[in-house]
Computed example of a mutant assay.
Amino acid sequence: MAKSSKSEKSDRRKVIEDIRRQQKSAERRQGTVIVGVCVLVAVVIIGAAAWNPITTAVQKARYSGKDLADIGAAASTCQKVTEKKATGSGEHVPTGQDVKYTDSPPAFGAHWNEAGVAPAPITDRYYTASSRPELESLVHNSEHGYTILWYDQTVADNSSEIAAIKAIAATLDSNDTNQRLKFKAVPWTKKDGKAFPGGQHIAFTHWRVDPKDQEQYGVFQYCSEVSGAALKSFMDKYPFTDAPEPYVP
């Protein structure tokens, strides 16, 4: 009987050890699967983050050396230019104070006035939502003769459209040898105000003075796609020299 009892104990220990080995093996496999899934998720996240900039860079390269008018869509993708009487020239409010603009996007109005902040430096031509100056700074740029290209979230999510905007900004920057091509490309976000008119995702704005009667006007043009041809025509018709304060950077 003693031998039988010892044998039974030995068998039970063997079964328990087998179970423990199987559990450890299962835990190792589970751990490996978890690590593998985590690595895969990380790769997907990193890949998604890197894909859009890489795609944009590749697409932008195809515009290298091209004239502004040859970048992006045809001018026919844009609506007619409109104007409205402008106010706010020389009307400065303290930096940090919100100004309620009625237009989406604004071309004129009261604005901040602080060196290096408002107007934003001419050296920066293209902005993202995280790097963009506040509206009150950009309106001061408008007073100094800038044409501003505004793009909404639909465009921000489109690598091809962003590539065209970056190419436009780079082209104007490389051709601007005397600070006469005053231009900025900036995003228009939900927090800024109302959406652009239906189906339009790009807006050009400018602030001009009529030389005949010195009346001031805000100039607007909306486009469904980015168009270097339309922008070139817009900037030719409304140069920086017709602004309220054109000869300030």
Rank of each mutant, 00 (worst) to 15 (best):
T177M: 08
E245V: 13
R180G: 11
G47S: 07
S10D: 13
S10V: 08
A107M: 00
Y63F: 10
A129E: 13
Q79R: 15
T77H: 09
A73I: 04
P94H: 03
D18S: 15
Q22G: 07
P244K: 04
V81R: 08
K100W: 09
Q97N: 11
F240A: 10
L231P: 03
A118F: 01
V81T: 14
Q30V: 14
T77F: 06
K190C: 06
A229P: 04
S233T: 12
A185N: 01
L172C: 05
T123M: 09
L68F: 03
A230W: 01
R62G: 06
K182F: 02
L138Q: 10
I16V: 15
A110N: 04
T82V: 12
K212L: 13
N113E: 11
D152T: 07
Y217F: 14
A163D: 07
D98C: 06
G199D: 06
G72E: 00
K166I: 08
I16Y: 11
V43L: 15
L138W: 08
Q59S: 06
V219D: 03
Y146H: 05
D242R: 10
R29L: 13
F108L: 02
S104H: 09
G193H: 03
A26S: 13
A69T: 12
P119Y: 05
Y222S: 04
F108M: 05
D157C: 02
H92V: 11
Q179H: 11
M235S: 07
K60D: 03
P94V: 05
G96K: 03
A48R: 15
R21W: 10
R29K: 15
G72A: 06
Y126K: 05
A229E: 15
K3H: 12
T102P: 00
V39D: 08
Q179F: 08
G65Q: 02
F204A: 07
P197L: 04
Q200L: 12
D242N: 12
F204P: 04
N175I: 02
A167M: 05
A74Q: 12
H111R: 08
A164P: 05
P53M: 01
E83L: 10
Y222F: 14
A75G: 06
K237V: 00
N52P: 00
V186I: 15
T32D: 09
S233G: 15
P187G: 04
R28Y: 10
K3F: 13
R21A: 15
Q30K: 13
Q30W: 14
A118N: 02
I46V: 14
T123F: 08
Q153R: 15
Q214I: 03
E8P: 00
C38I: 13
A61E: 12
H201E: 05
S4W: 13
T87H: 05
V43T: 11
I168H: 02
I34A: 08
L138F: 07
P106K: 00
I45N: 09
M1N: 14
G47H: 07
P187I: 03
D213A: 07
T177F: 08
V209D: 06
T241G: 02
F220T: 01
K184T: 05
V37P: 01
L181E: 09
S64N: 12
S142M: 11
G218M: 05
A163S: 10
R29N: 12
S142Q: 11
I202A: 05
K182H: 06
K66L: 14
G218V: 01
D176T: 02
H92K: 11
D70K: 11
A195G: 07
P246H: 03
A110K: 11
T241P: 01
I202D: 01
T128F: 02
D176G: 01
A170C: 07
D173M: 13
V58D: 08
A107L: 04
S227H: 08
